[in-house]
Amino acid sequence: MAPAHKAIVFTDFDGTITLKDSNDYLTDNIGYGPEKRREGNIDILENRVKFRDAFKEMLDSVKKPFPECIEILRKNIKLDPGFKDFYDWCLSEKIPVIVLSSGMEPIIRALLTDLVGPHADQIKIVSNQPKFLDPEGNEWTVEYHDDSDFGHDKSLAIKPTANLPKEDRPVLFYCGDGVSDLSAARETDLLFAKYGHDLITYCEREGAPFTVFKTFEDIHRDIKDIMENKTTIDEVASRHQRAKDAAKAAE
């Protein structure tokens, strides 16, 4: 029996599908600012604090009503220039795209609808939620998806498919940019890690295989070539290391 889908693309949302992270944007412009946020990111990378604790502290510093936060983000968050064409191709190829996010579902859904269009409602979202502390949403905090150190262990959404028998299992891809993406990436066949972001640092330190992307145009090209048997997952996964080795040899 053939798999229900030939491939599934799991992807982070903030800073991956979008050019800016919506949670970072709120923290930097309304919350306690970029310096303190970056300090928290470094503490996470160095395993001094749990992601869930630092992330909640970030969002709790944002003192504006939740509906107002959504409107601010709708005016300021832009889509990766290659994502819409990639998503349209996935629809035509019947390849599901599933968002796994540490962000909050109402924000993600609003931004996807604005940036991708009505057919964005076919994108499944597995994420955290806002917890409203009053009926109007003037005061709110993040309500985590699970009890993990990340608040949302993204790997949990992938494992049921990853553990299928080989004949029933689609090819699994993951696209991300941050430390919270690593557990999910380990359950898939190929990780696309965004150039210049913390996930690359973490993968190199942990010895986790990956390839680098700058925009979804890179992801679109590579996944299309893999699915059309023009290249292999191993060839794509080894590209970053080959480039590093070549640069070192040229020194």
Rank of each mutant, 00 (worst) to 15 (best):
A2Q: 15
P3V: 03
V9F: 02
T11Y: 01
T11G: 02
F13L: 08
F13N: 13
D14N: 14
T16R: 07
T18S: 10
K20A: 11
D21L: 01
D21V: 04
D24M: 08
D28E: 13
N29K: 13
G31C: 09
E39V: 00
L45K: 05
E46M: 08
E46I: 06
E46G: 01
N47F: 05
R48V: 10
V49G: 05
E57K: 15
E57M: 12
E57G: 00
M58K: 13
V62I: 05
P67A: 05
E68V: 07
C69P: 04
I72G: 12
I72Y: 09
I72K: 07
R74Q: 13
K75F: 00
K75A: 15
I77K: 04
D80C: 00
D80I: 12
P81T: 02
D85N: 14
Y87D: 06
C90G: 10
C90R: 11
S92D: 14
I95K: 06
P96N: 07
V97H: 07
L100I: 05
S101K: 10
P106F: 02
R109G: 03
P118Y: 03
I123N: 06
I123F: 07
K124Y: 05
P130V: 10
K131I: 01
F132S: 08
E136N: 14
W140I: 06
T141W: 00
V142S: 06
D146W: 14
S148N: 03
D153K: 11
A157L: 01
I158C: 10
I158Q: 08
K159F: 01
A162F: 04
K166P: 01
E167W: 01
R169M: 02
Y174Q: 02
Y174I: 02
C175Y: 06
G176L: 08
A184N: 11
A185V: 04
A185E: 09
E187A: 12
L191S: 04
L191C: 13
K194H: 08
Y195F: 10
G196N: 10
D198N: 11
I200Y: 00
C203L: 08
E206M: 14
A208R: 13
P209M: 05
P209D: 07
F210Q: 12
E217V: 08
I219H: 05
I219Y: 01
D222S: 12
D222E: 14
K230P: 05
T231C: 07
T232K: 09
D234P: 00
D234T: 04
E235R: 13
R239F: 02
H240L: 00
R242K: 15
R242G: 03
A246E: 15
E251N: 11
